[in-house]
Nucleic acid binder design. Sequence first.
DNA 1: GCAAGGTC
Length: 701
Amino acid sequence: MRLIISEKANTAKKIAGFLAEGEVREGKYRSIPHHTFEWRGDECVSVGLKGHVLTLEFPEEYSNWQKVEPAELIDAEVRKTVTEKGVAQAIKSLAKKADEVIIATDYDREGELIGVDALSLAFEANPKLMDHVKRARFSALTRGEVTRAFDELAEVSRELAAAGEARQDIDLIWGATLTRWVSRATRRYGSSFLSVGRVQSPTLVLIAERELERRRFRPEPYWEVEAGLRAGEVFTARHAAGRFKEKDRAEAALKNLAATARVVEVRERSSKRQPPTPFSTTAFLAAAANIGVSPSRAARIAEDLYMDGYISYPRTDNTVYPESLDLREVLGNLTRVEGVGEYAGRLLKAKRLSPTRGKRQTTDHPPIYPTGSALRKALRDDQWKIYELVVRRFLATLSGPAETKRTTVKLESGGEPLSAGGTVVVEPGFLAVYPYGRKPDEELPRLSEGQELEVVESRLLDKETQPPGRYGQGRLIQLMEDLGLGTKATRPAIIQNLYDRGYVHGDPLVPTETGMAVAKALKDYASEIATHEMTARLEKSMDDISEGKVSKDSVVDDSREILRRVYKHLEGSKEAFAGIVWSGIREDQVLGPCPQCGKNLVIRRNRKSGKRFAGCEGYPECRVTFSLPPRGDIIPLGRRCEACGAPEIKVIGGRRPWITCINLDCPKRQERKDGKREEAGEPSGPSKRRDLERSTTSKSG
DNA sequence: GCAAGGTC
């Protein structure tokens, strides 16, 4: 029997369907399905893994963070252990009956490693298989590609798999060593540990650097002169100088404006906006983020939709529909979809379909497109939102460009030049079906040169320059891709991790002071792990390994050597490093000024009960306390409640973050509460501290 | 209680 091992259940099933010369018999080992069929006169069994079924870890004796010096991890043995027991059992059981094994995992570095790991399980159960291994390399899950790959079976590339192993080793060794070192140096144990990693740390640094730019930014005042002009209706024109840096010059211009303005020139310009390209994972996640669905949620939902047959495989870098994709068949399906059915039907009538294409073309998976028609009521609201996005994007890629008309008008009043502009969509094209981010039309009245208009009003606008904006999640995903950080499958998880570690909050992403401090300390004392260059160098080394130019061991050993150097430097700067991080952590605990004495209110913990509360730094002179929500992360917002003046906080945890002031007696809170029932036994503040002997500053910092 | 990479 020939055992065919692929990366996931779906692929295993499809391979069986493509190769079978006759019927496919479905079977199961425990909960793992497999497919038996005949191909070229041989019996074959096709089975799917669940991605990586082995994971890397340090032996048990290294598990105590306090007792083991992190440095020991640099040279410690690393082991592979099974994470998917059921799958491993199924592979072993099937391997016993096999006389040949064909690796049919994804045709990429991780796929090769996943396949080689599966082989090690197969050999354990049946060593005779060792000399009977083949590799099927197909880069599209189509009948043609798969049968070709099985007709031209190749050898497994140990080198390519070794490149993947080098990545695994280096990520674990650096990540675990530095995570533990930083956590120990700052005495953050248990769930409040501080993490470090090849991808997450440079990502955090990106966010922190943008925040520093914002802090360094000094807004500069400028002024604009605006006038309301009547041409039938009233529209707004602006002084042609745009931004005045000096107020008196702006005021002079304003004063010069006469009671009428004369149209000097009217220009119209048509332009076309091309429809968007097919969805790669990154483009999809960015678009989802723009409609308010976070990458990690969008990825999760897309996975569900894929499993239910509504959309194609959601992890792809491809932005060009393959020849084999029957666009008309997809359109046919979409004629039944609520809201877009008619549009799809119209597209279907076209003689030729010419889809847009993006820059990146790969053949492993098609771009993300709808594979089935969904009923709105069959999906949850968030699922529908994502499904609809994929559907509309697909339709947009088959649509024509949008045509817009831009009108610019030059005017003059009292010797001052004015200008006005407006853009209208004259031919919606793809915008008719893909309205996301569409700006409303701004239409100017019809004007002709020489026309005199009444100046209805005029004003001076007081403005200032704005700092660069924070990264939204979609923007960050795109930036990570541009810098080679993470993969299409891991970026959402990496970002989620930054939230979970308390390094960032909100969207756009706001770094916490702890996040800022960790980023700074890493940049100052372990810059190797703080930039995307480590990934770039690793990629180069992995290419060398897969081409047989260099061994995995030498790459990993070189990396260990660098880590030893970094480690030594860190050890020498332990106090400085911890000092930076501690001051960040402390700042995250400062809620705002005490309403009674003006000193800082900070988050503290009652030593006995462990309950947290807000206490005044002026203690014992000032004994003001407030109670705090018992659960969830507390983010100080640095502003005060409008109603009572107490500091406001954001509480993260539970269903969704909420914002509140810390004063339970706040009139605003009472108002809201009046409708509801009073919660019994809830402590209220401000109150005098009663348990002063037992209270102490939180030791976490 | 560590990382990042798959898949679910």
